[in-house]
Design a protein around this nucleic acid. Structure first.
Length: 257
DNA sequence: CTGGGGAGGGGGCCC
DNA sequence: GGGGCCCCCTCCCCA
């Protein structure tokens, strides 16, 4: 859905690279996430790549195990991180924040640095402390020492900003005036509203089909590509989506994987 | 069963 | 520091 409504964005300084949507057939430019290293498929299947630059970019299902590594439902309660849950006296998560009001700052009462035990009355103060002083002096790597833990799900973050962003997924402060559905971010709501208005700003240059969400258009564009992005290493079949490839393997084509 | 669309979520970057 | 926006991912449902 619409993570991308603001069409005006097209003209913003931030280059959207929408041309890549079309050239998605050349995923090399498609911004493939690093965690999915492009398969250096020994495409002896050059037939696959015939006339399509994407062949070499077809993803290797051999990566799937890593990609589908189940994440623990609940992060192990690390000893170090400050557990804000014990510090916050908010309302229950059920009804909390279910308003259309802009997200309010987390009602945190006390912030304590896990590294030096200094206490701060404000999150910003703690954040500044950790960024400027504590982390520096003690060579504490933020990545290895998450300091902010979500009170709702025990997820941990190294920055307050990230935690706040995450918490919004629990509080869902953005509510649809039409149906009352709540969302964590304004743009998610805007995209949802499109489902009510039927607005579809993203159209496919190949078939003129329109989508309300750029991500969905991107996925759709894959269907126009002969060689899809995700390839089964066993049967060389390609799929437009990772999920399809996964289904394919799970269903037994490639039992070895 | 497969392919594809709809919808929603998370993290990161930029302003 | 916060908000806006983008990209990528995933789940669900339907043909």
């Amino acid at each position: 859905m619409p993570r991308s409504f603001l069409i005006k964005k097209y003209f913003s300084s931030k280059k959207p690279n929408y041309s890549e949507l079309e050239s998605q057939t050349s995923p090399s430019s498609a911004g493939v996430p690093e965690k999915y290293p492009l398969a250096t498929l020994p495409t002896g299947e050059d037939s696959l790549s015939a006339g399509c630059s994407s062949a070499g970019l077809v993803w290797d299902i051999g990566l799937l195990p890593a990609l589908y590594t189940p994440t623990p439902a609940t992060a192990p309660p690390a000893a170090g991180p400050l557990d804000l849950s014990s510090l916050q006296s908010c309302s229950s998560e059920e009804d909390e924040g279910r308003t259309s009001d802009p997200p309010s700052p987390e009602p945190v009462e006390v912030y304590r640095c896990q590294h030096c035990s200094k206490s701060y009355s404000g999150a910003a103060a703690l954040s500044r402390h950790q960024l400027s002083r504590c982390g520096k002096g003690k060579a504490v790597a933020p990545a290895t020492c998450p300091a902010f833990r979500c009170k709702h799900c025990s997820k941990e973050y190294t920055s307050l900003g990230a935690l706040k962003m995450h918490i919004r997924s629990h509080t869902l402060p953005c509510v649809c005036p039409t149906c009352g559905k709540a969302f964590s971010r304004p743009w998610l709501l805007r995209g949802h509203i499109r489902t009510h208005t039927g607005e579809r700003p993203f159209s496919c240059p190949h078939c003129n089909r329109a989508f309300a969400d750029r991500s969905n258009l991107r996925a759709h564009l894959q269907t126009h590509s002969e060689v899809k992005k995700y390839q089964c290493p066993t049967c060389s079949r390609t799929f437009s989506r990772m999920s399809l490839l996964h289904k394919h393997t799970v269903s037994g084509c490639c039992p070895s994987t």
